[in-house]
Simulated assay, not measured.
Amino acid sequence: MSDHASISALRKQLAETLRSSHAHADFAQSVKDFPAPLRGKRPEGSPHSPWELLEHMRIAQWDILEFSRKGEHESPKWPEGYWPKSPEPPDEKAWDRSVHQYQQDTDAFCKLIEDESNDLFAKIPHGDGQTLLREALLAADHNAYHLGQLVLARRLLGAWKG
């Protein structure tokens, strides 16, 4: 396999990893028809509600995406800027907005990765040694970790049918 074909295959695999669910439930399945009354509930023993997990995933993925493509991006303050202020969504439309934005950012990240003009291995100019490859892997790892927590919270709240 040529270097170009190998890099193309890597790009495809990275995007697929961000979009899909080979080893676990997928994002769409995990948030679909999530009962509104349970979105802000913290299961017994859990530090986070489903809303907190969803919004944290959205914020973190957005931050990684923006860092990967914009030198002027300023990350939220850690840790408070990465978590919502309340376990409950602020209004009845917040859940759907967060889901939609997460999916939009996933698509944007995949397009960034798949764009052959972006070198996966080059250091991000405004970073501290990070590469687009590293940021894509970071996003996929972070998303999978918290998606597992979200599914567990949903299961503990009695709202998982998967």
Rank of each mutant, 00 (worst) to 15 (best):
K123F: 13
H22E: 04
M1V: 06
A94M: 12
M57G: 04
K111L: 11
H22S: 09
H100Y: 06
Q101F: 07
P90S: 07
R97I: 08
E80M: 10
I59T: 08
L138F: 03
E16R: 14
L152H: 06
M1T: 05
P125A: 12
Q13H: 10
L10G: 04
Y102C: 06
A159T: 07
H73S: 10
K41E: 03
L120R: 13
V99G: 01
R134W: 04
G45A: 13
R42P: 06
W51I: 06
D26G: 15
I7D: 08
H4A: 14
E74L: 09
G45Y: 15
W51Q: 06
F109Y: 10
S86A: 14
P50G: 02
W51N: 05
K77F: 15
G40L: 12
V31T: 08
W78T: 10
W62S: 07
S46K: 10
I113W: 01
L133A: 02
I7C: 05
P125C: 13
W83E: 05
A36S: 14
H126R: 10
K70A: 15
A23V: 11
L38C: 12
H56D: 02
H22C: 01
D128C: 14
E135S: 07
G129I: 13
H146E: 02
A23N: 08
R69F: 09
D115C: 10
H24Q: 02
R58M: 02
L18C: 07
S30N: 05
H100F: 08
M57V: 11
R19V: 00
H4F: 06
G162V: 03
E88V: 05
S20Q: 07
H146Y: 05
S6D: 09
P89K: 04
I7E: 09
R42K: 15
W83Q: 09
C110Y: 07
S20P: 01
P76K: 12
A140H: 00
P47K: 12
E72V: 11
Q149H: 12
P87R: 05
D3P: 04
T106M: 09
K93C: 00
A153Q: 04
T106H: 01
H142S: 10
E44K: 15
